[in-house]
């Protein structure tokens, strides 16, 4: 089958337009990050006249970026793993059993996606404070508080995705494993999870990226030493001068690891989404 002229034109135009739209900001980010401040403050130039790596040295001094990086890494990794575990159990329950309250559970959990963050920001803070006063577990200003917040934020989508995924795994397989005498948990461990691996990867990536980008709750629930990159990056612009070259350098530094990781895992991500979403 050969493509018609129309198809070819459509493809070329689409790809050119979208490539420009995607690449221009990336180009600006990269080139600005290696321009001296003086050049950045004057009229824009696509090709840098002078090249300097100073912004990449200064970013670590202007703002404690390394600390924020570590915080983001810890918070997002732990939140992702814990939420995956919790979501696997919940999705397994929803997918394999019909029980009273099942509908209520799924509806409620999914509708939390509609909650405007502004509405429960302050109440959540207050609850954390009360827990602290009652139990001595510090949740405000600690990574723990942010971890449990983020892991809950990504739970609804994760449960929904995984439940869809588990539905697609034939029950006969569970039965076979159960006959082997390993029980429901054994079936989950030996049959369902291995078969759902792409789905798990996809959900994990989604969770990690969502946490990595969250701004609002991070700004209220963290204090100086526990702040994350989302907050740290904004501090460059509150300085005496807007160091656009440093901001771009820092943006690049915080983006590269996650972009690389994402692109490495994108095949699994797409595969996971396909199976989960088309139920």
């Amino acid at each position: 089958m050969r493509d018609t002229v129309g198809t070819k034109v459509f493809r070329v135009v689409t790809l050119v337009v979208l490539t420009l739209f995607t690449v221009i900001p990336l180009w600006v980010m990269i080139t600005t990050s290696i321009k001296p401040l003086g050049d950045v403050q004057n009229a824009f130039a696509w090709i840098p006249e002078h090249i300097t790596l100073e912004p990449y040295i200064h970013i670590w001094q202007t703002v404690p970026l390394a600390q924020y990086f570590l915080n983001s890494l810890i918070v997002c990794t732990v939140a992702t793993f814990v939420s995956l575990i919790i979501a696997v159990f919940a999705a397994y329950g929803v997918s394999r059993w019909r029980f009273r309250g099942r509908g209520a559970f799924t509806t409620t959990v999914l509708s939390t996606q509609m909650f405007p963050g502004v509405l429960f920001l302050l109440p959540l803070f207050l609850i954390f404070v009360n827990i602290d006063q009652a139990t001595g577990i510090q949740l405000v200003g600690t990574r723990l508080g942010l971890i449990i917040t983020y892991l809950t934020f990504v739970l609804p989508f994760s449960i929904w995705m995984l439940a869809g995924y588990f539905d697609g795994i034939p029950r006969d397989l569970d039965e076979a494993s159960k006959v082997d005498g390993t029980g429901a948990m054994g079936a989950l461990w030996h049959v369902v999870l291995p078969a759902a691996r792409p789905g798990l990867v996809a959900v994990g990536i989604y969770s990690f990226m969502t946490s990595w980008g969250e701004v609002l709750f991070a700004s209220v629930l963290t204090t100086g030493p526990t702040q994350t990159l989302a907050i740290g990056l904004q501090q460059y612009s509150t300085q005496i001068n807007v160091y656009w070259n440093q901001i771009m350098a820092a943006s690049l530094v915080v983006s590269v690891p996650i972009v690389v990781a994402f692109l490495l895992l994108q095949r699994s991500f797409v595969a996971g989404l396909t199976a989960g979403a088309i139920k």
């Binding site: 329950g93 929803v94 059993w97 109440p123 959540l124």
Partner: peptide
């Protein structure tokens, strides 16, 4: 069993979403 499987998710949803809401 299904309730036990759902319990952690419910706990966190209550704590972070439902009660603050």
């Amino acid at each position: 069993l299904p309730y036990a499987l759902l319990a952690p998710a419910i706990l966190f949803e209550l704590l972070i979403h439902i009660v603050p809401m």
